[in-house]
Design a binder for these strands. Sequence first.
DNA 1: TGTGGCGGCGCG
DNA 2: AAAGCGCGCCGCCACA
Length: 876
Amino acid sequence: MKLAKTCNNCALCKSRKRIVWGEGPPNAPVMFIFEGPGEQENNQGRPMIGKTGEEYTHLLRRIGLPRERIYTTNVVKCRVPNNGDPTEEQVQACLPWLVEEIQQVKPSIIVLGGAVAIRALFNDNLPVEMLHGIPFQTGEFKLDIPDYNPIIIPIYHPSAGLHRPDILKWIHEDFKAVADTLRRNLAPRKELYNDRMSGSPDYYGPDVKGKRLSMTQQLGGGPYICAIDTEWARSKPWCLTISGHLGESYMIMATERELLKALNFTLNSEDTLAILHNSLYDLPVLAQMGVHPPRFVDTMFMAYMLGDHQALKTLAFRIAGMKMSNYTDMVGQATYLKTMEYFARAVEREWPDPEPEAIWQNDGTVHVKQPQNIRQKIARALQDNYFKGADPYERWKKMVGREIVENVMGSLVPGELCDINFEDAKDYACADADATLRIYPHLDSGIRDMGLDRALDVDMSMVPMAVDMMKNGMPADPDHFYKLSGQFQARMREIEAELKEVTGVYINPGSSDEVRKLLFKHLKLPRPRRKTKVKKEDSTDDKTLSQMAGAHPAVGLLKDWRQYKKLESTYANKMPMWVQEDGKIHANIRGTRTATGRLSTFNPNLMAQPVRSQEGRDIRNGYHSSEGCSLVGIDYSQLELRVLAHESQDREMIDTFLNDGDIHETTGMRIFGLPADQLDDYEHRRPSKVVNFGIPYGITAIGMQESIGRDGGDITMWTEDRCQEFIEEWFKAYPGVKSYMAAIHAYARRYGYVKDFMGGVRYIPGARSYSKYLVAQALREAGNHPIQGGAGRIIKKAMGDLVPVYRDLNNAGYTVRPLLQIHDELLWEIADDDLDFVIPIICSFMEFAVELSVPTPVDPEVGKKWGELKTWKGDW
DNA sequence: TGTGGCGGCGCG
DNA sequence: AAAGCGCGCCGCCACA
């Protein structure tokens, strides 16, 4: 639709030759409105073309809406330079054109693609993740067009899905919502918020005495479900809130011991189920209040397993139309006042200057930098707040060197619920329990519909052990880390000198840019095949350097330097900062983060402590058992390959594991047709092993070749073709795996998700993409998930089974502490006297956690230091 | 001066 | 063109 030849509404269109008008039939039932033209759109003068346009067209075809039948346009018709977001002025200047388009087409549905379009045309300032895929007919449409009340559907922008696979799933759902709305299978919301749920709920605080006590007692009257949330303030639990009926929520302060006791009694009576949102956080807080719900379910885990959003406030809006206030906003004013008061006290005093920093320059000289005194930084933060309205607390959190002040004045704590009006705090806290109860039934039916019950049970059963792991913490020795740090730094100084020696120049080996220049410009070494992922520059990563080994002495030096730098910066220097007063590192565990259902740890990531190199292993010696105890690591042997054998039911693999055989040997024998005693370690076993490990990841010929090269193998012998051939032979040796992988791929294409054998789901939206590259990647993910996810659920099942076991043992006077789970391994701290009794028990629970077509044996190791665990010799 | 993308790398 | 899955976290550097 050509509306005009020229436009002079803003500087943008005056400076650009091309105005990109919308296109589509004048009676289109649906209008899609996106942000604005990109480079390709500007060049060709059409909206939504290029890669994103391909995906868009493809998505429309998938929902049975040919692109020719719908109208496609943008909020802004001219290209904003540098792919930037259009400004408010640019949007306003362009809106008259959009109004004209809409008046001519009068579509019954208007789709807002992406944050810019939503912000420009949707009246309430809600984030995309809350709004996307929901049809609204609520009067939120910003443009005032008489006698016209379209259904508006905010969606994610299709381009977001091209580089963010998690969003791709929602884009597919959003487009389906558009089609369902058009076909009247999905009714639009008539009000933005459901007033019955957000109006004047019955929230009760401490002023309501009798009702709260009878509530805690009535819970025990029969099968009962109640949602519980906690609030934290002044470094300890402040209150909990509990909701057993929709719209009703009760607040119990942490000081109300009698009520908490009654509640705990009720929760521990039969038939009571507690619903928590983020149990890994709330259970420890509840425990501090003396509340220990033995039966609970976690709505965050449920949402995670369904591939849904995880934030309570997002779920509450999307599922129940509930309007919830934001915590930071609630306490914002209090935070501001506390910060200003803290700053006022801080600028009154004199603070010592921070330590000068030495910075190595390119020419080899050392530049000494004197960081600014903290007093000046605070003064500037105050100034910026006054003149620019900058948030002083945000500034403080990011201010380098604030420890100087904190060590003297104590740390600045942001405003908390106990700092604000009590009624407001009560309503805020009660709303969380209320919301949790409201979203539960919806998520519960989703779990049932998807057949996720069993996987959810397993996950819930594991949570108490994860909580205990966080509480127990990993005993660590800061002095050991300091010592290593010094050693690593000395080695790095030596290497830097040697580098200067052999290359004639000083560079910062930590800068990939400088390394690139040194190797390929200064030393003129042959440029590598590998390129960096985003900028497509010559790679300087470890694989590349390994392939260049021998080309120049600098190559090996750079590799060594990198290794020491990693060990120093990430481990030796950092770990002491995480050690708490009890001499332990209490890492956090997340259970709702990974795509496959694995756990992850952070702050710090204790799962990634070095082990593969000798120097790295020395880091692990900084972790040691307490007096009279040992560290015990028990890991599953080749768990993922065993899961693959079970899932694929490949006869050969199953037989190998049933007969306690060596899988790498079996592979070599079958592929090379040789008896075991004629297999050469270098020629036969190594490639067999590489591919055995690579198959679960969807290895390719090049991947195999790189892997062999990294292991020090001969890549002139293992050419790409030879690798390809070998992989094909591998699949011939294990035909069951071949057909299994084909079946999984077909399943992913058909359903858009795959499941592990215990029911855990992973969505694979990329399998339905137009892009061949995305599809290939998606199919690798699909093939990997049942293996990685299946293995992850086995160990979670073992953890759940073990919870009552180690708790009983501890009650009986034994000392058994779970410390860490590392994907296929459990790390424990056990009293030396108890090792002989306890280890066999744990091992057998791990081995018999699930019954597969193959055994799942474990190997226990024992030692005083983590880096020096030795195979346990005891009987079991 | 502060922020976020990027390259790189520790683990299973 | 890219070329094996899943994480969390470091320093560098361009940009505002």
